[in-house]
Simulated assay, not measured.
Amino acid sequence: MSAPRERAAARWYDAEAGPLVRPYAMTGGRTRPGEVGVPLDLIALVAAVGTGPGEDSLLGPEHRALLSLCAAGVQSVAELAADADLPVGVVRVLVGDLLQAGRVQVSRPVPPARLPDERILREVIDGLRAL
């Protein structure tokens, strides 16, 4: 490497930063998840599915990190990205991999239109208090 190039590299990488892995290396160059049948947007809920420990050896470190975060409870894609300190696009691709491998389940939150009306809930509370 030439001297100016070495100086430029020294500015961007230091001992405290640790190893740098580009997002395209984590996803194998993919920018979108495979065909998973469920939209993997920010509010998609991801839950780990228990399987044998031998299968973890086939997963990358980022996949295993996402699985450990999901083991604590259901997480949204946005929460996984924040907790894993990874870009959302990378998390979407990795969750797609885990979904295709049968390691996670992805569901959608209840749409606001299907939630009960606040007025009805207040009437139920008032009725219970009257008992």
Rank of each mutant, 00 (worst) to 15 (best):
G28R: 07
A78H: 02
P23M: 04
I43N: 12
P33V: 09
Q75I: 12
S76G: 02
G50L: 11
V91H: 00
P19W: 07
P23A: 05
G37N: 14
L86R: 04
V95W: 01
T31R: 07
G54C: 14
L80E: 00
T27A: 05
C70H: 08
S57Y: 14
P39Q: 12
I43H: 15
A65W: 02
D56R: 11
G54T: 13
L58T: 11
L67E: 03
D97K: 08
V36F: 15
G50H: 11
V36G: 10
M26T: 13
G29V: 06
V36S: 13
E79M: 06
L45S: 02
S57V: 15
P33E: 09
G73V: 09
V95E: 02
E79I: 04
A47E: 08
L59T: 03
P33I: 10
A71F: 14
G89T: 04
V49Y: 14
A44D: 03
V21R: 11
L58R: 15
L45Y: 01
A81Y: 00
P39A: 10
G34L: 01
V49E: 14
G18A: 13
E55W: 10
R32A: 07
L66R: 00
A72Q: 10
T51C: 08
Q75D: 07
V46F: 00
G18M: 11
T51L: 05
V91T: 03
A48G: 08
V77R: 01
L94V: 06
G37V: 10
L69P: 09
I43Q: 14
R64P: 02
T31Y: 03
R22M: 12
P39L: 12
L66A: 01
D97F: 04
P33A: 08
